[in-house]
């Protein structure tokens, strides 16, 4: 199963980044083989709609699940439309820890946007 999660640096042992759209890196993890690969988050420098842009990227990687600190309405709607399950970090510190918690079923799944969205239009 392919999982994407937001992290503060391109390393599985790095601290998680709670931001979805503007989280520094997206780590792609294969839960069967435990291999990982880091992508710079395309939403980081977006002028607006970072969440929508990051969601589009996640969908293009054909991920089944995504883990982050919060999902605004645009990210939520996009990920939901793409059929990607969303999970929250909660008190998790590192990306590695997040994957372990995810596999143990300890992360909360998101059923609605968790924030009002950061900014849109201008």
């Amino acid at each position: 199963m392919k999982i994407l999660l937001t992290a503060s640096s391109p390393d599985i042992h790095s601290p998680v980044d709670p931001r979805f759209g503007r989280g520094a890196y997206l780590l792609e993890v294969d839960s069967e083989t435990q291999t990982w690969h880091a992508h710079p988050n395309p939403g980081v420098n977006a002028s607006g709609g970072a969440g929508a842009q990051a969601a589009q990227f996640v969908a293009a990687q054909q991920a089944q699940a995504v883990i982050s600190g919060d999902f605004g309405p645009n990210a939520f709607n996009a990920l939901q439309a793409a059929g990607i399950a969303m999970f929250l970090y909660g008190e998790t510190r590192t990306a590695q820890e997040a994957i372990e918690k995810f596999q143990a079923g300890l992360l909360e799944q998101v059923a609605a946007p968790t924030g009002p969205g950061h900014h849109s239009r201008r």
């Binding site: 996009a78 059929g83 239009r121």
Partner: peptide, 20 residues
């Protein structure tokens, strides 16, 4: 430029709040 329209697989989604 505002990511107000995105393509997710076979779906094209519009985000009115982002659209200029």
């Amino acid at each position: 430029q505002f990511h107000a329209i995105v393509v997710l697989g076979k779906k094209t989604l519009v985000f009115p709040q982002l659209c200029h």
